[in-house]
């Protein structure tokens, strides 16, 4: 791919950054996105934060979508996709607001998308690049999810909980209408596969998080596993959508 082609793709890309109380890291993330993905629209979805996330993001030059109530990661990310859909973007790129995803790695996702045969490209920590190590107590759950998703989606996935992903127009159209509310990453892979979209992974480097902790700890780990397993076995949950 030529630099001109990448620049053209970036000008049609909306970078969706879900953020909940990420005031300490959001500005750095936005600036890094501007630096590594010049020309892309950056939309930070402020999921009802109680800190200065929205102001920090605006100062750093992002467009801010402010949710008046906390909707959780699924509702927040979907807002970004709805925004990209309405504004006619060809591509959307999702990057977490906590600094875990490195925008300098994002072009791998966009380039894979532009090869043409993939609709949803997921950045995987486990395909060889980088040296991210998962906390020991998470490995079993991650392995289980990997097996379940690989079974339900018909091909092998190594990083089902990764929120570092790129979408083309078809995938944006799907997720703007159907997207799970809580812990959406895993289910959305199966959802896209069943809608006839081509989902694929590319290797990326990821950082350990700069601030904050994972939203999945303690008892909510149990809820997460039950919730996602049911979603994968019975069908995507979450009520009506329009």
């Amino acid at each position: 791919m030529t630099p001109e082609q990448l620049a053209d793709a970036l000008s049609r890309t909306c970078v969706v950054v879900p953020a909940f109380n990420e005031g300490r890291s959001i500005a750095a993330v936005v600036r890094s996105v501007h630096e590594h993905l010049p020309g892309a629209t950056v939309a930070v979805v402020d999921d009802g934060s109680s800190d200065d996330t929205a102001d920090r993001a605006r100062e750093a030059g992002a467009l801010v979508l402010s949710l008046s109530q906390n909707l959780g990661i699924g509702g927040a990310v979907q807002t970004g996709y709805k925004f990209a859909l309405r504004r006619g973007h060809s591509y959307a790129l999702q990057i977490d607001g906590d600094g875990q995803h490195d925008p300098s790695e994002a072009h791998h996702l966009i380039e894979r998308l532009m090869d043409g045969d993939a609709d949803l490209v997921i950045g995987s920590r486990w395909l060889g690049r980088g040296n991210y190590v998962a906390p020991r107590n998470r490995r079993f759950g991650m392995k289980l999810l990997e097996a379940l998703v690989s079974w339900r989606a018909g091909s092998r996935f190594t990083d089902t909980t990764s929120g570092f992903r790129a979408l083309n127009r078809r995938a944006i159209e799907l997720f703007a209408v159907h997207y799970p509310s809580d812990y959406p990453e895993v289910e959305s892979i199966v959802l896209a596969h069943h809608a006839g979209l081509n989902v694929t992974e590319v290797p990326v480097k990821m950082n350990a998080r700069e601030h904050g902790t994972s939203s999945i700890t303690g008892l909510s780990t149990v809820y997460f596993m039950v919730r996602v397993t049911i979603g994968l076995l019975i069908g995507v949950m979450g009520g009506e959508n329009s």
């Binding site: 801010v64 402010s66 949710l67 909707l71 807002t79 709805k82 925004f83 009520g239």
Partner: peptide, 24 residues
């Protein structure tokens, strides 16, 4: 209740999108 919470989610999302449009 599930129906209401889905509708509430859509309202909050639409409000954010309209707000962003007005800001622009």
């Amino acid at each position: 209740m599930s129906r209401l919470s889905t509708r509430q989610k859509q309202l909050v999302q639409d409000l954010a999108l309209v707000q962003a449009m007005l800001d622009a």
